[in-house]
Computed example of a mutant assay.
Amino acid sequence: MITVNKKWLRLIGIVGCTVWMASCKQATDAGVKPSYATMKVEVADKELSTSYSATIRGRQDIDIYPQVSGTIEKLCVTEGQTVRRGQLLFVIDQIPYRAALKTATANVEAARAAMATAELTYKSNKELYAQKVVSEFSLKTAENTFLTAKAQLTQAEAQETNARNNLSYTEVKSPSDGVVGALPYRAGALVSANIPYPLTTVSDNSDMYVYFSMNENQLLALTRQYGSMDEALKNMPEVELVLNDNSVYNKKGIIESISGVIDRQTGTVMARVVFPNESRLLHSGASGTVVVPSIYKDCIAIPQGATVQMQDKVVVYKVVDGKAVSTLVTVSGISDGREYVVLSGLNPGDEIVSEGAGLMREGTQVK
């Protein structure tokens, strides 16, 4: 007679129960069908906002270089000072240029006197030639001397003008209204037109230019949305500027221009927005983010989670007779990272899988 150890019987019972429970769970799981979130496609007005990294520049950032050489005698402004057009910024040593002007002025007087003498001689010879007192050679010689003296006067006057201009260039003035930038050169520094850095930069910041880049697809979408680039610039809504500290600038800007040439290296075009800057909060050289809204009338918008990207194709899954049917759609190149505006491929009333489309398969039962 075979005797079975009670411990072995207990172990066999536990294993049997475990196998039975697992088989029951599998049977239960097999009977449950997964459910998917779906949505009915509807037509509505939609506003999508797209963000672009941007750089801020003054309306004019003018580098100021001296037009004459010399030592700086006087600085008439300070860094950050607001200046008006024509206001004096620097004075360069004027002594040599005043002396040059005096010399040029004296040369003009001498040339004018020489011309007057040559003119008298020519007129005298002209009368004597008429009386057959002097030869034709003497007359021609006197005429040529007069013409030479006349030319020398013109040359001396040009030199005087040049000397006068050089003297005026010793007073460096602001070419526009704006704000003075850094002043790397101080009184006593020797400067010339070939210095490595400008004397300063005058930034016209009454209005600020904010530059950002958009790619080719975004440019095409914008053109299609409005019909042409000119219409887009006329009808695009105002844009916002998010500053580097994530605060939103309190004035809105207008897209003033979009470059018509695509950069071959980056595949982008440059756009320029104008922002008013009465408070002088914006500074040339700063950075920020431009938020551009795009308004679509009577459009179909779907979540991006409802789409599957297949190379350059976008696919959604329609629910037809309770099954998933893949459908190619065309979407706008402008999106806010959450939704797509569908241009073709869907109609109002269509039912689509709104979440987890990447896990779907053709013909999947949709509960």
Rank of each mutant, 00 (worst) to 15 (best):
R186C: 05
R186D: 08
R186P: 02
R186G: 12
R186H: 12
A187V: 10
A187S: 09
A187F: 11
A187R: 07
A187H: 01
G188P: 05
A189L: 01
A189V: 13
A189T: 11
A189S: 07
L190I: 05
L190H: 02
L190D: 01
L190T: 07
L190P: 00
V191G: 02
S192K: 02
S192F: 09
A193G: 04
A193R: 05
A193L: 10
A193I: 06
A193F: 05
N194W: 08
N194P: 12
I195V: 06
I195P: 00
I195H: 04
I195M: 10
I195F: 04
P196H: 11
P196Q: 14
P196G: 09
P196F: 14
Y197D: 12
Y197A: 11
Y197F: 12
Y197C: 08
P198T: 12
P198V: 14
P198F: 14
P198W: 13
P198C: 11
L199W: 03
T200Q: 04
T200N: 04
T201S: 02
T201L: 04
T201W: 02
V202M: 03
V202Q: 00
D204F: 09
D204M: 08
N205Q: 14
S206D: 06
D207I: 13
M208I: 11
M208P: 02
M208Y: 04
Y209C: 01
Y209F: 05
Y209E: 00
V210M: 01
V210W: 00
V210A: 00
V210Q: 00
Y211V: 09
F212K: 07
F212A: 07
F212D: 08
F212E: 06
S213K: 13
S213N: 12
M214Y: 03
M214T: 07
M214N: 03
M214F: 07
N215E: 01
N215K: 13
N215W: 06
N215T: 15
E216I: 13
N217M: 03
N217G: 09
N217Q: 10
Q218H: 04
Q218V: 09
L219D: 04
L219C: 02
L220E: 12
L220P: 02
L220S: 12
A221W: 00
L222H: 01
L222T: 07
L222K: 01
L222F: 13
T223P: 00
T223M: 15
R224L: 14
R224Q: 14
R224E: 14
Y226P: 03
G227F: 04
G227R: 09
S228N: 11
S228K: 15
D230L: 15
D230K: 15
D230P: 07
E231W: 00
E231G: 01
E231A: 10
A232R: 15
A232W: 14
A232G: 11
L233H: 06
L233N: 05
L233I: 09
L233Y: 10
